[in-house]
Design a protein around this nucleic acid. Structure first.
Lengths: 201, 201
DNA sequence: CAGTTGACAGCACGATCGTGCTATTCTCCC
DNA sequence: GGGAGAATAGCACGATCGTGCTGTCAACTG
């Protein structure tokens, strides 16, 4: 049996379903009523777990961050320092986009467009999480430079920008355009990014 | 005086405001009531111009496409064939992202996330417009290869993928992350994309 | 200038939204 | 096992949603 109390268990079940729904329909598209029906709770029963819809939205993002760290960041950090770790970040990121519990793909990207012009704590949380993630990438690149895998004149933030851009396109081409060659396109671009970042041996 | 009838005039005024609102809040976030208030019409008076909300959404996208062609595609097609034209496409695209009549940035990108998992004619229209645009880019690249500006082994579709990805990141870094160095990051990446596409002189 | 067509407002509808309050039921601890 | 407290349901609220119908006033046409 679980070590969690009843409340914590259902709360987790709610957030699990909510994250899946938010990955497809966004944070605004997700309504309390629909979510309650989906989880098998009454609207008020579900609502009692969160003070407001805004709190629910932040809780969803918090759940997403925890999952992202568990699925993408942590595994990559167990890889050897340098290029292998950078590559692992990329690979796990691509897998993350296809996670079964995220039918709509990366939830951060899915909600970016609806939050980018709406100030408030939800937006703030998302921005912070993405900045942290970019920092993680840049740090991994810096380490790769230190290890001698990448050239010394590689700009870690620029590398992070371009890597991030490739995943954005991956999301767009796969989900919206349904381009069957998305995977190879993205991988090829990444290999070329690596290629021109490597130090001359 | 304008050659348009009364109905066409207000319809255009509606779509103008609607496009601006949709660029920030998306197509679903935009409500008929809010739009009517903004334009100074009654809800039903505005609604009479479009049979349904879905029709309105398609009309908005149609307006966006017309603007995009007028502001981005056509000017670039007047530039000399080859690399100058490719560069013009990029430059106009960046300017488009900052157009004053688009307070939320590129409307296509703004609505991509909410439409990518919602089948229907609105989504179909958006997908088609983006495919057309990618084709336009690829064609310009093919011409640049023919002119000898780009190497013969450059893949036009791959080029389009990477160029598209840079603009996606431009949108994300500027609008969500508010990174002040977005412009230089994007331009640097584009120059490097050009650099490695050029034929050896 | 008169008449017809079209643009728009007013109003109402059912549905759904987020959010409270009040019971009732269940869970956990002693 | 019984009692305290958490978990959930029931119900209601005002607001807003998209969408129709009906009337009225303006605009264009002959």
């Amino acid at each position: 049996m679980s070590a969690m109390s009843k409340g914590a268990t259902t709360r987790e079940a709610i957030l699990d379903k909510a994250l899946a729904l938010a990955s497809t329909g966004g944070l605004d598209g997700l309504s309390i009523g629909e979510l309650a029906r989906e989880v098998g709770l009454s609207k008020s029963g579900l609502f009692a777990h969160f003070g407001s819809k805004e709190d629910l939205q932040i809780a969803i993002l918090r759940t997403a961050v925890a999952r992202f760290i568990a699925e993408v960041v942590s595994p990559a950090l167990r890889k050897p320092r340098g290029e292998p770790r950078v590559r692992a970040l990329f690979e796990s990121w691509v897998v993350w986009e296809q996670a079964t519990f995220l039918p709509g793909g990366c939830p951060f990207l899915a909600v970016s467009c609806e939050l980018d012009d709406r100030p408030g704590p939800v937006r703030d949380f998302l921005v912070q999480s993405q900045r942290d993630w970019l920092d993680t990438i840049a740090t991994a690149v810096r380490i790769a430079i230190g290890e001698g895998h990448f050239a010394k004149d590689v700009d870690p933030e620029q590398f992070a920008y371009e890597l991030y851009s490739l995943i954005l396109a991956y999301h767009q081409f796969r989900r919206l355009l349904r381009d069957p060659r998305t995977d190879e396109r993205c991988r090829l671009a990444f290999e070329q990014l690596l290629e021109r970042s490597r130090s001359v041996a």
